[in-house]
């Protein structure tokens, strides 16, 4: 009886090895000649994203994004913030001139002109974007409901908000609901420019629910936000002077789409360093793993998130937890991120 137990303990399945000593398990995979990760990918392979858009009927825009075993749903709901309710209206532009409706078309001049206008303070101070990530949907055993949002969920939401603002992805122009007072006939200056005032703003509530979590929550969440924003339709809204309120049209043909500034794509890397892990004395080496899953994330402390946009422009680099990735290494990661952007671009149909 005792002998059988001993023989059993000598050969145990890989799952048991992974559970008992995760770091040496990962090291054994990476330091083998083929250097594949336990999930079968090479260190620079990302998981292929799949995107499904506008399947939720109560959302202005929605998307389901799946990255391997990580899956999340993003739903965007638009509500109205009347300008009269804003406590500090100093950021609301006052000197707007009426525009012809086709200026938001892909006209190069108009586009460039629009790039110059800094509407960041307007968006940020009015809190027009409200992203929130919900992990506690039973998406993984570590995230069960009944508790307030975990630190991971809080930091992910905050990172999303920062990225939305710093990339200036959404134009404030698309969110404004304008009103042009009718010109009175006995106007003293008939040649005066008609003025337009901002009566209200659309506020976008961006809610991301994780159906399943297997690492790299940020890339999946950001991808779903991009896909949902791309498919968001805001109803045509106008100020009704008689009712004193904003009214919307339910016709799809009259709805406006958002015109996004570029397509910044996030790529996350985790760094596995033998000096950090347990039970790896005398072994040296470090590996950068693209698009880590939950098992790898638990073994890696350093992580790098690179956000790149069109033409290799770097929109954001977040790096924390260690100093393995240096200047030269970072250049490689930016290169990889650019390739990753092409992949996303294809999936998002842009």
């Amino acid at each position: 009886m005792a002998a059988t137990t001993v023989t059993q303990s000598l050969t145990f399945p890989p799952e048991l090895f992974a559970t008992l000593s995760p770091s040496p398990f990962l090291l054994a995979h990476l330091s083998s000649s083929s250097s594949t990760r336990p999930n079968g990918r090479t260190s620079s392979t990302f998981r292929k994203p799949t995107v499904n858009t506008n399947s939720l009927s109560h959302c202005n825009g929605s998307a389901v994004v799946r990255l391997g075993n990580t899956a999340c749903v993003c739903g965007i709901r638009a509500e109205i913030l009347p300008s009269s309710d804003v406590a500090n209206p100093s950021y609301i532009p006052t000197s707007l001139t009426p525009e012809s409706p086709d200026t938001n078309m892909a006209d190069d001049d108009a586009d460039n002109e629009d790039e110059d206008i800094d509407d960041g303070p307007e968006m940020a101070s009015l809190n027009l974007l409200v992203p929130n990530i919900e992990l506690s949907t039973g998406s993984s055993p570590a995230h069960l409901p009944g508790n307030p949002p975990s630190t991971l969920a809080q930091s992910l939401s905050q990172r999303l908000l920062d990225l939305l603002h710093s990339t200036r992805l959404i134009r404030a122009k698309d969110l404004r609901i304008l009103y042009q007072p009718p010109l009175l006939e006995d106007d003293e200056e008939p040649d005066a420019e008609p003025t337009v005032e901002v009566k209200a703003y659309w506020v976008l509530y961006i809610d991301i629910l994780f159906i399943s979590l297997d690492g790299n929550a940020f890339d999946a969440a950001w991808g779903s936000v991009l896909a949902a924003l791309k498919n968001t339709k805001l109803p045509k809204a106008w100020w009704d002077q008689d009712l004193g309120s904003i009214l919307c049209s339910d016709a799809v043909a009259e709805a406006n789409e958002l015109t996004l500034r570029g397509l910044p794509v996030a790529a996350t890397f985790a760094v596995f360093d033998t000096r950090r892990g347990k039970g790896m004395k005398g072994k040296t080496g470090s590996w950068v793993l693209a698009d880590p899953d939950t098992f790898e994330e638990a073994q890696c402390e350093e992580s790098v998130t690179v956000v790149v946009d069109d033409g290799g422009r770097i929109r954001r680099i977040e790096k924390s937890g260690g100093g393995v990735v240096g200047k030269a290494h970072l250049r490689d990661l930016v290169e990889l991120s650019q390739r990753r952007r092409e992949e996303w671009k294809q999936v998002l149909n842009i």
Partner: peptide, 12 residues
Amino acid sequence: GPSSGTIVPTFI
């Protein structure tokens, strides 16, 4: 979101 709250759109 905005501290003053937001109102849901009224559709015609």
